[in-house]
Design a protein around this nucleic acid. Structure first.
Length: 671
RNA sequence: GGCGGUGUAGCUCAGCUGGUUAGAGCAUGCGGCUCAUAUCCGCAGUGUCCGGGGUUCAAGUCCCUGCACCGCCA
């Protein structure tokens, strides 16, 4: 028996809802898995919720629940979202499992036995009030470079400078506002440098990763592999390091091990042999991951597996991010669309088709252009692919009582034409160039449509019913081939066609057969609805409406500590005015700034606002906003800013400007 | 700042190791058909292949350089 194949998608973090960016990965992996299964390979698809780490621990703590209670609803929600998109895992598990603990400890111990785990003291910020060490994201302070206030511990959102938290002036804990102290702690490190030679070989082996990914990894290896800190101090949600009181495995150590633990669970449930996957050099393991986690999957992970004696992946397939209408998904634009919001408005098959039609197997970002989405689904999926079935099946039922005849010898060249395309589809699926596969499949549907058009059975049936029946017989065979070829992308569509044509579940070998003759087919049923652009707008509108309901992005923002009390006089010294935006324009050379010209009653002011990533200039013109009118003018590189706009948001990419629901006269004071 | 990727028709993209006149689909225009619960079939136009240098008999393709956009920096 051939060695088994195991495919994984990256584990979704149990800290938020699945969105269409996640779905890009799960859908493409699911298509690959379904294709491999259709070709008769012994394939399983493994995934799990990624449950550990600081963000979940802190969010649970803030919500007043245990981490276990916090992650539980996401486990249910994620599985429902995937199932509704026909993403069919053979097992979907969780990293917070005994199996995962066992394998995490085993791998750690084996690496330690080989001397590849070392301890070393680390000096870190520590909040005495919260009694915890503070990761970079939990410290804010003033940027050492541009003096912007309230910047994270690792990078300034205003000027883009990267630094360490110790460089900040007035650093403070985002949880309580207290000033952190420095404290030393012993951490465990995985000595990556010991694996340099191994990784160079692994990365350099053709087929392991895409060429552009290989170049990317090689630069890292060439710069020298740094040891990796794999431990965290408590409080932490994760697995305790054996022999330690309050130290835990870093989430990135146990997350990929979730692939192994899930397989263990799957094997226990199904009676399959675990070692055939993870202790078998012949086993084929594929990981599909987003480009942001390439490093973990193509360097740390193979090194860990190699050191601990587990099966190495054959391939790590890296894909890009999803953009919507050419831009990063944005909550204010309504393009941060969750899987559930999509499902509330649109059929999952549309998205599966659209993604497949655009996936090219490379690391490029994929743009979901909503206008194109409507067009492609209607023009290709509905008008070409499904329409062929709709032309021929009712025709056969009406004129021949659902019975097919024999294929006419004259269609031989057409069959050859289609058969020549099938291997190209197969190869495209194998290479994850689903766009080429879809292109060929549409072309085959066109062959069928054109043949049906030219042969005009609706005319032929009047004089030579048998000839007309032969025409239909070929067209039905085309329908079957198309359905079989598109089945990995559209399992539901294929199943519906199987039912209508009364054929057994289609396998890839059925695609080139053309032997459906003297067969009785069933009644036609509507296969797929046209996309209504209104549904798309409704989905976008709902994504805006959902803003409050969505627990802010994967990494929830901690709430800033309150400022010290002030008296009413202190407040009244802040002169807030109603202002109407007269002009808004981008500032050349500044990624984040917009230059605004506003009317504050008696005068006009020029204000620079760091909201470019959230607002297009045209969105602002005519809006009434709140301006701090007596703020000292500030000289900037691009001019003088004569005031400040009130706005709220966690960072520069997701800001909402405060405005009025009813018109106000410019210049009115706000108290 | 360092590194990587991308830049081809209005839009989305093909163009493999350099080799005729740069392609497809969508969109647009024109024509035909009517079996189709979903309209299909044919014909047609369009390009500083991001800019500038270079290598070559030959460059969208290779090299250098500049610009723009995107990403990564553990």
């Amino acid at each position: 028996m051939a060695a088994p194949v195991l495919v994984t998608s990256a584990l979704p973090y149990a800290n938020g809802s699945i969105h269409l960016g996640h779905m890009l990965e799960y859908i493409q992996t699911d298509i690959l898995v379904r294709f491999l299964k259709m070709t008769g390979q012994d394939v399983v698809y493994m995934c799990a919720d990624d449950t550990h780490g600081t963000p979940i621990e802190v969010n649970a703590w803030r919500a007043g629940v245990t981490p276990e209670e916090y992650i539980a609803p996401f486990y249910v929600e994620h599985q429902r979202d995937f199932a509704d998109f026909s993403v069919a895992f053979d097992c979907f598990y969780t990293t917070n499992s005994p199996e995962n603990q066992y394998h995490s400890e085993t791998i750690f111990e084996r690496l330690r036995e080989q001397g590849h785990i070392v301890t070393r003291p680390v000096t870190q910020y520590y909040c005495e009030q919260d009694a915890r060490y503070l990761p970079d994201r939990f410290i804010r302070g003033t940027c050492p470079s541009c003096k912007a206030a309230e910047q994270y511990g690792d990078v300034c959102e205003v000027c883009g400078t990267t630094y360490s938290p110790t460089d900040l002036s007035d650093a403070h804990c985002v949880l309580c506002g207290a000033e952190p102290v420095m404290r030393e702690s012993v951490h465990y490190f995985f000595t990556m440098s010991a694996y340099e030679g191994f990784l160079r070989d692994w990365v350099g082996t053709p087929g392991r990763v895409q060429p552009e990914v290989r170049r990317f990894l090689e630069t890292w290896i060439n710069e020298g592999l740094r040891d990796w800190d794999v431990s965290r101090d408590g409080p932490y949600f994760g697995f305790k390091i054996p022999g330690e009181e309050d130290k835990y495995f870093y989430v990135w150590l146990d997350a990929p091990i979730g692939y192994i633990a899930t397989t263990q669970k799957f094997c226990a449930d199904t009676g399959r042999d675990f070692d055939a996957y993870w202790h078998n050099p012949e086993a084929t393991i594929y990981h599909v991951v987003g480009k942001d986690i390439t490093y973990f999957h193509a360097l740390f992970w193979p090194a860990m597996l190699h050191g601990a004696g587990y099966t190495l992946p054959k391939k790590v397939l890296v894909h890009g991010f999803l953009t919507v209408n050419g831009e990063k998904m944005s909550k204010t634009r309504g393009t941060f669309i969750t899987a559930r919001t999509y499902l509330d408005h649109l059929a999952p098959q549309y998205l599966r088709y659209y993604y497949a039609a655009k996936l090219n197997g490379r690391v490029d970002d994929l743009d979901l252009n909503l206008e194109e989405f409507v067009h492609r689904v209607d023009a290709e999926l509905v008008n070409k692919i499904a329409n062929l079935v709709s032309r021929v099946v009712p025709f056969v039922n009406r004129h021949f009582e659902g019975r097919l005849g024999e294929l006419d010898a004259s269609v031989k060249p057409l069959i050859d034409n289609i058969r020549a395309r099938v291997p190209r589809v197969r190869e495209s699926y194998e290479r994850m160039e689903f766009n080429r596969a879809v292109q060929e499949i549409v072309a085959i549907a066109e062959v069928g449509n054109k043949y049906f058009q030219d042969a005009a059975p609706w005319e032929l049936v009047k004089e030579d019913p048998q000839a007309a029946q032969a025409v239909c017989t070929f067209a039905v065979n085309c329908c079957r081939t198309v359905a079989a070829l598109i089945k990995p992308v559209l399992p539901k569509y294929a199943a519906d066609v199987e039912a209508i044509l009364r054929v057994e579940p289609l396998l890839f070998d059925d695609t080139a057969r053309f032997d459906l003759e003297a067969h009785e087919i069933g009644a036609f049923e509507r296969l797929i609805e046209r996309v209504d652009a209104k549904q798309v707008s409704a989905m976008v509108a709902a994504s805006k409406d959902n803003l409050d309901a969505i627990p802010a992005s994967p990494m929830a923002q901690p709430v800033e500590a309150l400022e010290p009390q002030i008296d009413i006089d202190a407040f009244s010294r802040v002169d807030l005015r109603v202002a109407t935006v007269l002009q808004a324009e981008t500032v050349e050379g500044a990624d984040r700034l917009l230059r605004l010209n506003v009317d504050i009653g008696n005068e006009q002011r020029t204000i620079f606002a760091g909201i470019r990533q959230s607002y297009a200039p045209d969105d602002l013109v005519g809006k009434q906003v709140i301006v701090v009118a007596n703020l000292q003018p500030r000289k900037m590189r691009f001019g003088v800013s004569e005031g400040m706009l009130l706005a709220a948001g966690p960072d520069g990419t997701d800001v909402v400007v405060a405005e009025f629901a009813q018109p106000r006269q410019p210049g009115q004071r706000i108290r």
